[in-house]
Design a protein around this nucleic acid. Structure first.
Lengths: 108, 108
DNA sequence: TAAATATATGAACCATTTTTCATATGAAAA
DNA sequence: TTTTCATATGAAAAATGGTTCATATATTTA
């Protein structure tokens, strides 16, 4: 029996999932959206990113089910997927409390 | 107040965390180790990877606290971090049930 | 202590991803 | 119905990361 059917069956999907989060721009966007929905211009301003960069990355996040989009007139509001992203970040917060120092060591 | 102190304070650490998992070789190794500890040669055989590739990737996984290493004579046994990796994969399993098809669509 | 086995590591090459730039689309306002 | 504002997108340039190859280290066995 395989105790890990999903990962072994769908390695590519798992890779894409993690890859989507392995990016400073997208993590910053997720963090900005964590509290409330925002439209593209608001995200640009909050992040200090140019609009094209934000749109490209929102597309990737949406594609992977990590944010949802809703049109309102000429604006597009984005919301984070609270079912996945919220508990995921909490899990990693806990991991970071233990291993963060070691991890950041390698970036110097 | 920042409801997401950890991510906003340590974006680089979070990026590195996800980047560590955004890799086919490392995901395969994690999956192989999910049930029981194995030494490098055993992992090579199970994965069908060459030794150098396995060692490089084990180093990265260990560095980020995702696997632990224990020396036994000339062998080195690696164990997956069950506190983080296990619940993490379960969370993503659930996410995949909903969004997997859409995600994989983009790879064709 | 020489040979064999197990594992680690540095550097180079290759591949993928990100960002930027220019431009297109679409909705609202003038 | 032209202009303006909001957002998306394609392609190219720039940055990043992965795998391989050759070799080093460490432990055991002969």
């Amino acid at each position: 029996m395989d105790s890990c059917k999903t990962l072994s069956a769908l390695p590519q999907a798992y890779k894409l999932f993690f890859n989507t989060l392995a990016n400073d721009s997208r993590l910053k966007i997720i963090n900005i959206l964590r509290n409330k929905s925002k439209n593209v211009s608001e995200i640009c301003k909050a992040a200090g990113f140019e609009q094209s960069l934000v749109s490209h990355n929102l597309k990737i996040l949406e594609y992977h089910g990590m944010v949802f989009m809703e049109k309102k007139g000429k604006f597009r509001y984005y919301t984070v997927n609270k079912n996945t992203i919220q508990p995921l970040l909490e899990l990693i917060d806990a991991h970071m409390k233990k291993y963060c120092c070691k991890i950041l060591e390698g970036t110097r």
